[in-house]
């Protein structure tokens, strides 16, 4: 198993906002984290990224994350946070920054690095906008550019927080398809925070449901659909027709 989380307590501004979260994510599988606003999803991502204080153990590729230096960590696990910035650099520059954990202090790139960057641009379909600046492309393109950087970083474990928030439907589908394809093809282990429940059910293999900083459910997508936990947690009704599930 590739990402293994055992959190007793995780803190935000010295207050425990997340407790008793235990789950595993295997290679080639997508785990979706769902829950209402303020349920602790982003804190969980920050804990996995080692950016908030927590008690417990988090493993990536069977290595204890808290024992690693930043650079070693960045070769093992990459993260796209919910809030991403759009500085005045080109898309290609951004993708190139994904190689940072592998470079020396001076930052000189080898032929291999450049090849990986080219491949990442190609795979994430960024060729047409590679020379555009981040502050002049759309929000959907920006997310895709960050995903391109993640591909260049090339870690076995990837975590994305609200990868498709505020995106048009077609863009959302395109990025999620891309993520799924990458995870299956490269046998990566992927944790996705998702706000769209229908997409979570469609794309994820496993689902982790959080409520008020507590883990309510972790298991396969089929299993959670056999319960009424999602409906209860979000106060929604489920409608299923022709194998399509919608929450209203």
């Amino acid at each position: 198993m590739s990402i293994s989380v055992k959190i007793e307590d995780a803190y935000y501004k010295n207050k425990s906002v997340l407790s008793d979260v235990h789950f595993n994510c295997e290679n080639g599988k997508i785990t979706a984290i769902i829950g209402r606003n303020g349920s602790g999803k982003s804190t969980l991502v920050s804990a996995i990224a080692q950016q908030v204080k927590y008690e417990g153990e988090i493993f990536a590729s069977d290595i204890l994350m808290s024992s690693l230096k930043e650079k070693e960590r960045a070769r093992l696990l990459s993260v796209i946070f919910q809030k991403i910035k759009a500085p005045h650099i080109t898309v290609k520059d951004l993708v190139s920054l994904g190689r940072s954990p592998y470079l020396s202090l001076m930052g000189r790139m080898s032929k291999n690095d450049l090849d990986i960057i080219e491949k990442a641009i190609l795979d994430s379909d960024l060729r047409v906008i590679e020379d555009k600046y981040l502050d002049e492309i759309s929000g959907g393109e920006l997310k895709r550019a960050y995903f391109g950087m993640m591909l260049a970083q090339g870690t076995e474990n990837i975590v994305l927080d609200e990868a498709t928030a505020f995106m048009d439907r077609d863009y959302e589908k395109r990025l999620l398809d891309l993520i799924k394809k990458t995870v299956k093809k490269l046998n990566k282990c992927c944790v996705l925070v998702m706000h769209n429940l229908e997409n979570a059910i469609k794309y994820a293999d496993n689902i982790l449901l959080l409520e008020n900083g507590k883990q309510v459910f972790f298991g396969t997508t089929e299993r959670i659909l056999n319960t009424d936990l999602i409906e209860k947690s979000f106060s929604l009704k489920r409608i299923t027709t022709n194998e399509i599930t919608v929450f209203v």
């Binding site: 920050s46 990224a49 950016q51 230096k69 930043e70 650079k71 960590r73 960045a74 070769r75 696990l77 990459s78 993260v79 796209i80 946070f81 809030k83 991403i84 910035k85 500085p87 650099i89 951004l94 920054l97 994904g98 940072s100 954990p101 470079l103 202090l105 001076m106 930052g107 970083q153």
Partner: peptide, 23 residues
């Protein structure tokens, strides 16, 4: 000039820079 590649990562915000291996 030597450490400029590290400083450059700061323009992505501290969380992202840290996730890219910056202390």
């Amino acid at each position: 000039i030597i450490i400029s590649k590290r400083i450059e990562l700061l323009c992505l915000g501290e969380s992202t820079a840290s996730a890219l291996g910056v202390n």
